[in-house]
Write a protein that binds this DNA or RNA. Structure first.
Length: 662
DNA sequence: GTCATGTATCAA
DNA sequence: TGATACATGACC
């Protein structure tokens, strides 16, 4: 062999030895806290716990709590987050080393990590699924950019906007002093609620703490954002929304995570944002079903924020024109206090009337009294005309008084299976041959008619020369000016008017009432109050419908509190949520059978069904109901079911705790 | 989910 | 008896 070649072989051997040594050194465990507890991104119920990994010395400084890592799990590379570092592990076997620290950026804050665990438990879901709601996907280029400098606190807590609210100024003072009051607030008609919310943020900021405001949609987020700019000055807050692209979304998330912004406004995706020194969480219009997350495990923003307020000892404000039964529960348990306006304030803010629908011209949808109110309103400013959306699901209600028809056995909604079959309960499947209305005793049932949105054309003919603007789900107006135009909007698409509407007309209230779910009446009142709330001070509200209906009387008296209290009392009697804790299990009949066999329900639980679900996947569903006090036991039982089912590789079933619609 | 291991089953 | 299928449990 040539001398040169021999030398190069020796060289290669030496090089290999050096590489081996370096690798050994790299994989030597860190000297301090050589264990990392890692939350692995695997949505399998029986693997839903942290796993320990060895921290190589090269990662000792970067594999800190909150960092993203890659680890080897069951032979494959998976993503995870470091929950904490530890000196020792309870695991008896050999620990795998971390594969890689993806980023040292601590994106999973400890309090958010704790929150995801509680939310996953309550909803009997996988923590990994909740984690996806808490931490947005990484955007590497954005992470390298510095976040904007933290703004100097400006603006002051001017509580004047809250002066007409009983205990309102006290609530703000409490926030400003660093306290954590919890309240349910119902806005009065004409309230500039975005500005009022901005003032609660200012008060909280004055105590050195951050705030989080969750609103139903982007439109409301923009309104609150402008109000915060006006009250606090620019660059004090970020708007987090899933609509923004990945780079912007991650940039704003980092600004919050790094403490450069301490005020967050957003839709439901913002509920778990890692606000530093969080002092206040707010949900606006908690009855809007956009606050219910449509992805597993289907958590609700109000519940996530309530858990957060309790865990992080922050203030909470459940706000809206309407009041939900769930927030009544927060009041009756003493968890939150009530913020409302005096009767005298409500009276001077708006005059609300109900006019019957019968008194109208041939071919018209609008009664004369409503026409008169529109004409009078136009003399002073814009007029809003709310019309129900078309295309509601078929349902059954009393033919005479339009009370929704409910099952005699379990109080579930009655539906019509076919032309010859009797009405049947959608929950427990019990047919009802001899249904009679529990309100008026009438025996006739009707399916609601579909609305027809010809309102704009009709108004155009009647008010020639007036501009008619329309706002509906496919084209929603962001806002309108003070000009005396008529604004026809479908329910939920009402634009606010600068200075408020001179008059608000609510048409065809019976159509909004004719929905087949449990919350139809509550939802209808919420929609009407939302439109009526846009009226200017001293303005007029006219609703078209049956003045004898309690829900319309609640609108006339502007009494969302009384209505919600009665509704909750009614639900208590019939053991319906939120007076009871309810869960549904949905899946293929075989899978559902297996699941129900494994389910160890609390003694007090009762189960309805399973019955076929009205979808084309041939699924069945069981409804489980327990008293509120056993709610946690139910969640635990459902969680255990998922673990056993997942470990035995049985077919998946979908579990929903506190579903919005049953 | 993957992977490894154990037990049942069957043709030769 | 060995090959194969399927169930079971661990996964750090």
């Amino acid at each position: 062999m040539l001398p040169g070649l021999r030398a190069s072989v020796a060289d290669a051997k030496a090089k290999a030895a050096v590489t081996r040594a370096r690798r050994a050194a790299e994989f030597a465990p860190a000297e301090i806290d050589p264990i990392a507890r890692v939350l692995v991104d695997i949505p399998l119920a029986h693997l839903d716990r942290p796993f320990d990994y060895a921290v190589p010395i090269k990662d000792a400084a970067t594999a800190m709590p909150g960092a993203r890592v890659k680890v080897r799990f069951a032979g494959q590379d998976v993503d995870g987050f470091v929950l904490e570092r530890a000196a020792s592990s309870a695991h008896t076997g050999q620990l795998q080393p971390l594969r890689r620290v993806v980023s040292a950026e601590p994106v999973l804050h400890p309090e958010v990590a704790a929150l995801t665990a509680t939310i996953a438990e309550k909803y009997a879901g996988a923590r990994a699924d909740v984690m996806r709601l808490a931490v947005p996907p990484r955007h590497a280029a954005t992470e390298k950019e510095p976040s904007p400098p933290a703004p100097r606190a400006t603006g002051s807590a001017d509580p004047s906007s809250w002066e007409h609210v009983v205990h309102g100024p006290t609530f703000l003072a409490h926030l400003g002093a660093g306290g954590s009051p919890r309240a349910v607030w119902n806005a009065a008609p004409g309230d500039d609620w975005p500005t009022m919310l901005a003032h609660t943020v200012a008060a909280t900021l004055a105590s050195g703490r951050g705030s989080l405001i969750c609103v139903p949609d982007q439109r409301d987020a923009v309104r609150v954002s402008s109000a915060i700019d006006a009250v606090l000055g620019a660059d004090q807050h970020v708007v987090l929304s899933a609509e923004a692209g990945p780079a912007k979304r991650y940039r704003d998330f980092l600004a919050v995570s790094r403490g450069a912004r301490k005020v967050v406004v957003g839709t439901r995706s913002a509920a778990l944002a890692p606000v530093r020194d969080l002092g206040l969480v707010v949900i606006w219009d908690d009855g809007d079903d956009l606050h219910a997350e449509p992805r597993a495990p289907y958590p609700h923003v109000r519940e996530m924020l309530a858990i957060r307020a309790a865990q992080q000892d922050t203030a909470m404000l459940v706000a809206g024109f309407a009041r939900t039964c769930e927030s009544v529960l927060l009041l009756t348990t003493g968890w939150a206090h009530e913020l409302t306006s005096e009767r005298s304030v409500l009276r001077e803010r708006a005059r609300v009337d109900v006019v019957p629908g019968e008194d109208r011209a041939v071919g018209s949808r609008i009664p004369r009294a409503a026409f008169d109110a529109i004409r009078e309103g136009l003399a002073g400013g814009p007029v809003l005309v709310q019309t129900p959306r078309t295309g509601y699901a078929p349902s059954l209600a009393c033919e005479r008084c339009r009370t929704p028809a409910r099952c005699q056995t379990c109080a579930g909604p009655l539906v019509l299976g076919g032309p010859t079959t009797p009405p049947t309960c959608r929950w427990c499947g019990t047919p009802d041959q001899a249904w009679a209305c529990r309100e008026c005793g009438h025996r006739g049932l009707r399916a609601p008619v579909r609305g027809e949105a010809r309102t704009a054309e009709e108004l155009g003919r009647s008010f020639a020369g007036t501009t008619i603007r329309t706002s509906s789900s496919d084209r929603v107006l962001a806002g309108v000016s003070e000009r005396p135009d008529i604004v026809v909007a479908t329910v939920g698409a009402e634009p606010p008017a600068a200075g408020g509407y001179a008059a608000v007309i609510i048409l065809d209230t019976w159509l909004t009432l004719a929905r087949d779910d449990l919350r139809a009446t509550e939802e209808a009142l919420r929609r009407w109050l939302g439109a009526a709330g846009l009226v200017r001070r001293g303005g007029r509200v006219v609703a078209v419908g049956d003045p004898a209906l309690p829900v319309l009387q609640a609108l006339v008296r502007w009494d969302p509190a009384g209505f919600a209290a009665r509704e909750l009392a009614d639900r208590s009697q019939t053991h319906l949520p939120p007076a009871a804790r309810l869960a549904t299990i949905t899946g293929e009949p075989g899978a559902l059978d297996d699941a129900l066999t494994l389910l160890a329900l609390p003694e007090v639980a009762d189960m309805l069904g399973p019955v076929p679900v009205d979808n084309d996947k041939g699924e069945h569903r069981a409804v489980i109901r327990v008293p509120l006090a056993s709610g946690q036991a139910l969640s635990e039982a459902l969680g255990e079911l998922q673990r056993v089912r997942s470990a035995r590789k049985l077919d998946a079933v979908r579990i929903q705790v506190d579903p919005q619609v049953v």
